[in-house]
Design a protein around this nucleic acid. Structure first.
Lengths: 194, 194
DNA sequence: GTCTATACGAAGATAGAC
DNA sequence: GTCTATCTTCGTATAGAC
């Protein structure tokens, strides 16, 4: 695609999404105006509509992009031979991935209710797909006699809630290193399913 | 206090808070207008200002009321003799209390960022007080040799995150009864700290 | 692609009548 | 205590010049 001299679509577009991500995470989708986003990017409000048809789509794109990244990264992770190894890999993967993008994680479950029903359904489907990956590990482990799990659905949600909770308190450079955090959580997960 | 014939302060006041709670939980604080709240209550927008000085105070009162209820209920719970019994009681108390008022729970951590800094500090202090109650149980259990906990602070936050996660999926009348849910979570908590 | 200008509606909050 | 009316500000989104 040829571009004219003054065209910055491939630079400004990502900057719009970055600014929106930061502002949505800090103040919430409904509390952020297009004018604020434009100010952060350094353009006028009207110019934003070259990069998104409306504010709703901007939110949806951020959430969908995040879920796509999550599922791709999960799919790219090395395959482990046994359910306990798979569960450990999942635990460490989840913590690391989520700590790397706290803002996207934050809006991905804080702003779900600000999606239109159609957009919500899309994100929900992606989220369920991620949960099913963990549940499959728990089921395989139970079938193999390695795990003692009363209800794989609930345990799946409980583990994910516990792990995602790391984002509420972890600060890099704090008292604990990332490997230490991973080890502590893996210890709890391992014991909880045994 | 004498009241005039047309005075409904003691009826309308709570109804304003109820309507605000429901609307804030459903759409988010920033997305809800005073006019919407007034419509739900059945008065004009201007009349709301007889019951709250402004929208911010309305939110703060809801959150502070919720935290006060939580800490009172915890203080009123029967005292258990040993750390494992205390932890079981805490686990069941937390699940039951939170499932009884899902809307208040929801806004109490979704709308924290919409509080003014001063109001935020007040709510944070109350939240920390609740967390310290659980941490004290974990420390006592570790000192007594009943629990195996690497880091009491993190374990406290991990347990609370896991338990509060119940609110995201539990629906009364669903597949599992409340006692069953409590039992499943207590089983996981117990194993995770042993 | 970005600007300025603006259409159009709705927000929070207040004033004064009843 | 509640109403109607209103002030002032701000919201999303669009139009047309450059």
């Amino acid at each position: 695609m040829a571009r004219t001299a003054g065209s910055h679509s491939d630079i400004t577009g990502p900057r719009v999404r970055e600014a929106a991500l930061t502002l949505f995470a800090r103040h919430g989708y409904a509390a952020v105006s297009m004018r604020q986003i434009a100010r952060d990017v350094g353009v006028q409000a009207g110019a934003l509509y070259n990069y998104t048809p409306d504010k709703q789509t901007l939110l949806f794109d951020l959430l969908q992009g995040h879920m796509d990244d999550l599922l791709s990264a999960l799919a790219d992770a090395p395959v482990q031979p046994t359910p306990p190894d798979q569960l450990e890999a999942f635990t460490r993967f989840h913590i690391r991935f989520h700590l790397e993008r706290p803002q996207a994680v934050f809006i991905s479950y804080m702003e779900l209710r600000n999606l239109t029903p159609e957009n919500f359904a899309v994100i929900e489907d992606l989220r369920r797909r991620y949960e099913r990956a963990l549940e499959a590990i728990l089921q395989a482990g139970r079938d193999a006699g390695a795990f003692h799990v009363v209800d794989t659905k609930i345990t799946t949600l409980a583990i994910i809630a516990m792990l995602t909770g790391v984002n509420t308190w972890y600060r890099s450079g704090g008292r604990l290193s990332l490997p230490e955090v991973e080890a502590i959580y893996w210890d709890m997960v391992r014991k909880a399913v045994t």
